[in-house]
Design a protein around this nucleic acid. Structure first.
Lengths: 225, 225
DNA sequence: GTCTATAGAGCGATAGAC
DNA sequence: GTCTATCGCTCTATAGAC
């Protein structure tokens, strides 16, 4: 068997290890010395292959974003009402969060990459902010539009706010899985993807369906793109 | 007028400026050189007054936690059903998040301190994890118990999970107020405390009221403490 | 491509003058 | 209590041997 893309070479080892360590300890929290030691490569390899520490971060995004966006959008396309299917809103929410939680299957490593984005969203890092806007704005806009069409009684700000709360629930689960385990005395495990989906989708769907406090005047609302 | 507690002395200036800068840029993201320069005090003052950078962080928690916990628990005590009042669940949620969002009034600075805790929950920082557990476990347990009593149809894990999603929505709003402003093209402002409360409380209350997927067998559930 | 060695800067902490 | 000066350490990035 011929391995066309060697997984064990220096560049791939650095990408994999950097994603994992940055996700767990933050971008500034991991030094190139720690990273290269853990990956078993020389300290100078990062600068040789990626130009700089920031170049390494950008390369992680270049590799990860397209698969995750493709899977999310494919899931969105597949949403349809039908007998025996979950309600449309639940399908849209699941299409957005399932690839972000995946640890096995087609988008394995989605959970690690989501944790990385969550951690970066906290760090005062201009590059990270730019990378997230560049790679995720378009997909988020499409999901927000789909949510707005599924819930036509909501005003625009209400749809944005509820999507924002969805992001918060998702990101906090990835960032701080230890807190719920500690508070629940081990009863809840944020690392259990199936449990997270089972708990999160109905909660968020019910939140999205909360009555609008700001009913839109009939015929005056613009259509969602 | 006699000012009994001088607000402009070195120690108070450091506490105030450190809380603000740590909340915005993280604990590891702010050096003592940046901090002391911004506060207009000498570099050696942190070690003189607080022993170390970690001592400064602990002092911030010692000052802030009691007022915030007191206000949250007072709000919880005041929760009661009655004509013309919001439903009990909405009151409990509001009692928990209002002090955490406050920027004026009795618990002014609550928003900054909440952002600090949110940022610390991301950083790989053992001291921060200990401080949060030490100062917040008891209050969180009491709110979780109140939520469990208000929603007796939910299983224990469901209550923990929904409280966890509440924390996520709250923390993400404090950590990344820029993302919703960017996505909504300025329509939503996460710095507007009243708007955040108006949007967050009904969303979370509806989420908490989502049907249980795991109905508790009658007579077998233990009472919430 | 991979290595060693190091430059150049910033870090927390502290000794010691005043 | 406040200051300057500095120690010992770690960081990213790079020059140059192999």
């Amino acid at each position: 068997m011929i391995v066309t893309e060697e997984l064990g070479d220096t560049k791939a080892r650095l990408l994999r290890m950097a994603e994992r360590m940055f996700a767990e300890q933050g971008y500034t929290g991991v030094s190139l010395r720690q990273l290269t030691a853990a990956a078993g490569v020389n300290l100078a390899a990062v600068n040789y292959h990626f130009g700089s520490k920031e170049g390494l971060l950008a390369a992680i995004f270049e590799n990860r974003c397209r698969p995750m966006n493709d899977e999310r959008l494919a899931g969105l396309e597949a949403c349809a009402e039908g007998p025996g299917k979950a309600p449309l809103l639940e399908q849209i929410i699941a299409a957005f969060i399932a690839p972000a939680l995946a640890s096995t299957g087609e988008s394995a490593g989605g959970a690690t990459f989501t944790r990385l984005r969550a951690v970066l969203s906290v760090e005062h890092n201009e590059l990270a902010r730019e990378l997230i806007a560049k790679h995720f704005d378009a997909t988020s806009v499409r999901f927000i539009a789909a949510l707005g069409r599924a819930l036509p009684q909501l005003s625009r700000p209400e749809v944005y706010w509820r999507f924002h709360f969805l992001l918060g629930s998702l990101y906090y689960t990835m960032i701080n899985p230890g807190r719920i385990e500690h508070l629940s005395d081990g009863l809840c495990d944020a690392g259990d993807v199936e449990a997270v989906m089972t708990q999160m989708v109905p909660f968020l769907a019910a939140g999205f369906r909360a009555p609008s406090r700001e009913p839109k005047p009939a015929g005056r609302s613009k259509a969602w793109r």
